[in-house]
Amino acid sequence: MTHAISTRSLTKKFGRREVLHGVDFTVEAGSVFGVIGPNGAGKTTTMRCLLDIIRPTSGEVRVLGKDPREGGTELRRRIGYLPGELFLEGRVTGRKLLAHYQAISGPVAPGRIDALAERLGLDLDSHTRKLSKGNKQKLGLVQAFMHDPELLVLDEPTSGLDPLVQQEFHAMMREAQHKGQTIFLSSHVLSEVQQTADTVAILRDGRIIAVESVSGLREGAVRHVRLSATGITAHDAGALLGAVPGVGHVEVLESGSGVTLTATLEGEIQPLVQALASLQLTDLVLEEPDLEESVLKMYSNPQEAAK
């Protein structure tokens, strides 16, 4: 089995409103796959289809080689799920609640729950309804990770977590991946996914508009360039930079004896560096690619993104 998850033409209608319009994607076993998209894009609905909480209107879904509809309890025991909105009510302690979920999920190694709780800094003996949002989220994470499932489906896993705990969570994800577990996670911001995921799918209005490796996304992303040089006129500098493939938005200002220039760069750096070699540079800044910006561009303009 090479695919942990695959969907084909996954469509979901609620009444007459169609929220997923034929979603196709595959998640390789052992990989970390991130889905990003604005609120209401269909991330949660997609995840619920994987767990048979919601039934697709049409299309095909395979999770760990099985149709979630037929996989039943055996399949769900092999999955760890963190819902996007976690509600834990009732007057029970975290420990008792986890014991309950332990009774209805795959086998949990002894001491595993305490170890996870300690890593995340979660007090298992306080009542769940008194927990803060972040602590409830930790409880949800322990619940999803505790039986070391083959597949983790995590809907906005870091929401409500402080940065230190987020780091710990990222470490947990890396360990899970080392153990061969597959992770499918969602977020509405890319920065969260880009640190951990191998592949990113961008979902917008119920459609996948792009599936990219994180490195591919980085190559396609826009970098901002800023430089100062002497001994050249604004016109010549503009012409020189403008001729380099991938460079756009060139703006030049005369300043004293030289020029200050800003531009954007998409694609490879090498041609730009060669062009710059002929200049008397006094300053050069080539920024980290801004993935967020390129993704936002895809959100607002899917046709161009799919070019």
Partner: peptide
């Protein structure tokens, strides 16, 4: 309605 059934059903129960 309180959102808790979803998580229960995601486990090994019918």
């Amino acid at each position: 309605e309180s959102g808790q059934l979803e998580l229960t059903l995601a486990h090994g129960v019918t």
